[in-house]
Nucleic acid binder design. Sequence first.
DNA 1: GAGTGGTCTAGACCACCCG
DNA 2: GGGTGGTCTAGACCACTCG
Lengths: 242, 242
Amino acid sequence: MGPINKTDGIPLYIKIRQQLHDEIENKILLPGQKIPSEDELASNYGVSRMTVRQAIADLIDEGLLYRRHGVGTFVSHSHVVRDQSRLTNLFEGAEQEGVNISVQVLIADILPAKIKVSHALNLAEGDLVFHIKTLRSTDGMPITVHDAYVPYKLIPQLLQEDLEATPLWDIFELNGYRVKRAVQRLEAREADEELAGLLSVEEGSPIFYKERTVYLDDGTPIEFTHCYNRGDRYTLTVVLYR
Amino acid sequence: MGPINKTDGIPLYIKIRQQLHDEIENKILLPGQKIPSEDELASNYGVSRMTVRQAIADLIDEGLLYRRHGVGTFVSHSHVVRDQSRLTNLFEGAEQEGVNISVQVLIADILPAKIKVSHALNLAEGDLVFHIKTLRSTDGMPITVHDAYVPYKLIPQLLQEDLEATPLWDIFELNGYRVKRAVQRLEAREADEELAGLLSVEEGSPIFYKERTVYLDDGTPIEFTHCYNRGDRYTLTVVLYR
DNA sequence: GAGTGGTCTAGACCACCCG
DNA sequence: GGGTGGTCTAGACCACTCG
């Protein structure tokens, strides 16, 4: 431990947070163990107590620590990895594990939004949207069909991008739009004839249907997508709180 | 606005938070609109700026506000209701909307944990667990089958409770265990013969399968459940961040 | 340069929990 | 009573954005 270098421009609470994070990761602080009190940490690091609290608050948010009033601050037992359900993971559902996914664009055009899409994207009915239909496969095995809708006015040049090589969210990012959160509605369905063909399954096979709306940090919806996933090759993990 | 009553024991930042919350709810502050600066709020309410920041931090966490460094703090456009995906909702999936759900207990016994359950609940194989299998219906229409497992040692008297009348989490709460978060794994499957019978569907019908582990705030797992939901009567909504 | 949020201090008093 | 976290103050300086 010991005082902290205060002259390198990195906020103190971030350095303290990282140090505690490392100590938990490296089992120097063990699950269930009490960490030093806020006063103690403040004096050890040579900072004020409010600064320590800011670091601790972040780690509590991450699920690594929890507090008990009048008792102390402790390391959580099972660090339910919050990253499991972060958007980066949701982004391509299954692809995080080094599985390489290929994307085939089936449709990419511009059309007036119908009622459901316009409502999801907070547009007027008839406002122009991109419709991008893709088939994603792992090792040549199709796993999912996406129908994505994006407001035309947000990225008019969208179709000039290489949609098979560049994830949609990377394109958003390049245009200054940072995705913040997504709302997903999930269902189990049966494959209809078209889906069965695209996904190489029997008609009537289980389909993991996912409908999602993606938002920027100011709450603007930027994408609405229907996802049809092969039930036998796709699972989704989410974490819910409180 | 104006200064705040500082003598009623309610923390100032909570009262400021509620006031801002109300103003957003009641459209006094409109989506996209800039709220007063932190300095301004501090002086209006007669508190320090750190106190105002605490109130604002909570509202940002809720998704009602967002900040832009050097610019200001703004009301989000679409308040993706975070409550949609809070545990209270997940708790009974569909029941939040005033739909009344009846619960029928099919099995309630104690047995040694098999490998998968013991792993999920952080127990040794063979440690005792409750197994509670229930069928839930809305208006006499079966929608879901649960196989819930709870460590025996946490609530030895669990079977003395009225499991059909009292939600499991209420029983936890009564025993001093506050549920904090859940990890869910979701799949689309087909109904096997037993499930088809219980849920009154054809064999092979789509089933929304959900496997979840529920944790207390110190990270202790308290419940592991397999849920088999009728695909045509069950949807799940979740919100993911960052 | 003016205004805003981001970080930080060095204290203070209170509420809670435990032995 | 002693230790802990919960709340709060009255300042300070910095970093960012915009006109």
